[in-house]
Simulated assay, not measured.
Amino acid sequence: MKWALSGAMIGARELLELAPAAEEAGYHSIALPDSVFYPEKVSADYPYTPDGKRMWPAEMPMPDPFITMSAMAAVTERLEFSTNVLKLPLRDPLLTAKQIATMAVLSGNRIGIGVGLSWIPEEFAFTRTEMRTRGARTDEAIEIIKAVCAGNGPEWVEYHGKHYDFDRLMISPAPDRPVPVYVGGHSEPGLRRAARAGDGWISVNVPADQLKVAIGRLAELRAGYGRSELPFEIDVSPTDVGDVAGYREIESAGATICRVTPWRIFDAEQTTAGRIGALRRFADEVIAKY
């Protein structure tokens, strides 16, 4: 099992202190969410709470994941970084691929990209992108990112899809190892996208039983696509697990990365010192014994 520290809802400068502490404590990576802005009024329910309401205030810090990942990579040597998840259809895929390629080179191939669709209509309206085509555009964007960041260094690429179309071009620098692209989502289309096109799958924060169901479905879908033998990460965040036995059980179900928030597990003080103490305690009580 690889251990990822959740970097959600933490200030940018504090993350620069948490990253070296996480590396020293033995974590594999830090995962960062993506939120471009907080609309005062939202015309859709939040899909991951019973009442459909968001569980964070407007002023909650959500630093840009790419800038923050680059900054954290500069103060660490081994720790890896990923998005959990990047709202890909809000962005131009070529510009996104350029950013990812540069981050991968600067970090020494310590970057992974988790992608999702976004559920907020206002995000699409205010960024002048189309919500209706978000799934199809995400499929094409994944292909474009993988072509640019295929691991062959700078090379000529072209793409001719329904939503994105360009002739041969080269983006430099480009990484000498492929950048993995993971797909988030518990819906059937999301699971299919992960099984068909992803290098892995990323869960939301849900109980272990729900994770096991999704992992089982992913196995069925990957077999159907003839991809069962390919490497595939399963990145989970169980809300009802906090000890070695529980993590071993979810690993036996197929999880390969576990995303944790130690300051919530231990009800620690929401300060930099409190979070560093909690991540070290989790490393001592779980990671070291695991």
Score class of each variant (00 low, 15 high):
residue 2 K to W: 11
residue 6 S to L: 06
residue 8 A to E: 05
residue 11 G to F: 06
residue 13 R to G: 06
residue 14 E to R: 01
residue 15 L to Y: 00
residue 17 E to A: 02
residue 17 E to T: 08
residue 21 A to P: 01
residue 24 E to T: 10
residue 30 I to T: 01
residue 31 A to G: 03
residue 34 D to W: 10
residue 37 F to D: 00
residue 39 P to E: 07
residue 40 E to P: 09
residue 46 Y to S: 02
residue 48 Y to S: 08
residue 52 G to N: 04
residue 54 R to F: 10
residue 55 M to R: 14
residue 56 W to Q: 08
residue 60 M to F: 12
residue 61 P to V: 08
residue 62 M to T: 14
residue 62 M to H: 15
residue 70 S to Y: 00
residue 72 M to K: 11
residue 77 E to F: 10
residue 77 E to P: 01
residue 79 L to T: 13
residue 79 L to R: 15
residue 82 S to G: 07
residue 82 S to E: 09
residue 87 K to Y: 14
residue 87 K to G: 12
residue 91 R to M: 15
residue 95 L to Y: 11
residue 96 T to I: 11
residue 96 T to S: 09
residue 98 K to I: 14
residue 100 I to D: 02
residue 101 A to T: 02
residue 102 T to I: 10
residue 104 A to W: 01
residue 108 G to E: 09
residue 114 G to T: 06
residue 114 G to Q: 05
residue 116 G to R: 02
residue 116 G to P: 02
residue 117 L to Q: 05
residue 118 S to Y: 03
residue 120 I to K: 06
residue 123 E to A: 13
residue 123 E to K: 13
residue 125 A to Q: 14
residue 127 T to V: 11
residue 128 R to K: 08
residue 135 G to S: 14
residue 136 A to P: 12
residue 139 D to I: 03
residue 143 E to D: 08
residue 147 A to F: 11
residue 155 E to H: 15
residue 156 W to K: 15
residue 163 H to A: 13
residue 164 Y to P: 05
residue 167 D to C: 06
residue 169 L to F: 05
residue 172 S to P: 04
residue 172 S to I: 04
residue 174 A to S: 09
residue 175 P to W: 01
residue 177 R to T: 15
residue 179 V to K: 03
residue 184 G to H: 02
residue 185 G to P: 00
residue 185 G to H: 00
residue 186 H to Y: 04
residue 190 G to N: 00
residue 190 G to Q: 07
residue 191 L to M: 04
residue 191 L to P: 03
residue 192 R to L: 05
residue 192 R to S: 15
residue 196 R to T: 04
residue 200 G to Y: 09
residue 203 S to G: 14
residue 205 N to G: 07
residue 206 V to M: 08
residue 211 L to G: 05
residue 213 V to P: 01
residue 213 V to Y: 00
residue 213 V to D: 06
residue 215 I to H: 07
residue 218 L to P: 08
residue 221 L to V: 11
residue 221 L to Y: 04
residue 221 L to I: 06
residue 223 A to S: 12
residue 223 A to H: 08
residue 224 G to F: 05
residue 226 G to M: 00
residue 227 R to L: 13
residue 229 E to H: 04
residue 232 F to W: 12
residue 232 F to P: 05
residue 232 F to K: 07
residue 239 T to I: 04
residue 241 V to S: 00
residue 248 R to M: 11
residue 249 E to C: 08
residue 249 E to D: 14
residue 249 E to L: 14
residue 252 S to P: 05
residue 257 I to M: 04
residue 257 I to D: 04
residue 260 V to G: 03
residue 262 P to N: 10
residue 263 W to R: 05
residue 264 R to K: 09
residue 273 A to P: 01
residue 278 A to F: 03
residue 278 A to C: 05
residue 281 R to S: 00
residue 281 R to V: 00
residue 282 F to I: 12
residue 284 D to K: 12
residue 285 E to A: 13
residue 286 V to A: 08
residue 290 Y to T: 14
